[in-house]
Amino acid sequence: MTWAWENRELVLELFWRHAWLSAIPVVVGGLLAVPVGWFSHRNPRLRGGVLALVSLLYTVPSLPLLVILPLVIGTGFLSPLNVLIALTIYAVAIMARTANDAFGSVSPAVLDAARATGYAPARLAFTVELPLAGPVLLAGLRVVSVSTVSLVSIGALIGVSSLGSLFTDGYQRDFTTEIVVGIVATVVLALLFDAVLVLLGRLAMPWARSQRSVTPTQGRWAAFFTRGGVSAGGDAL
């Protein structure tokens, strides 16, 4: 731990870089995925296609994606943009399906009642559907955030520095402490992100606290790890 203290400036700098490299894809990916999920929920006929395409993106392994991206989008090989875009793609891939399910979880009876009260379509979408889908959306975003924070380190292999640089450097110098500090810092960052999301959720959706069953932890992890395409209904791509 003396090493971490002596190199606190380096560790902190990498920590911040890592934080930014994770935060941007989570936010951008989340913002992109919600409309996609809403669209696929609204168009059952296109749903299969949209979700299949999205899970196809998720199938591409991260390291090869980081190698291929510069060629496709014309960025420099060492550009952090590659990491940002790759992680945004994954964020959309995970989140779009969750968003689709989130809108599906909103009770049709409530929407019907709102429509009967005289809500116009846009107003209905933003002031009724979106908030009611909120708890499930938040659960999905938490999964995306944990996975993104852990994936950012892969960028170190192609020279985009983050806490992952502690792994490559520590390995080359045969220095275990550096690697362990990197792992601990990454986990701390993931926990911090999660705490922020939970807090934002509480502030934005105070009503959801009394019905926590909306986002069962088990369902959320299970859904993530079995990667959606395999829900009991079996619309596997």
């Binding site: 380190s153 292999l157 502690l166 792994f167 390995y171 792992i183 986990v187 993530f224 790890f225």
Partner: peptide, 18 residues
């Protein structure tokens, strides 16, 4: 499951290797 998910794969690989 949640805990393992938060672990960075590269960190795990290099740590185990050392």
């Amino acid at each position: 499951t949640g805990a393992v998910r938060a672990l960075p794969t590269l960190g795990l690989l290099t740590w185990f290797a050392l």
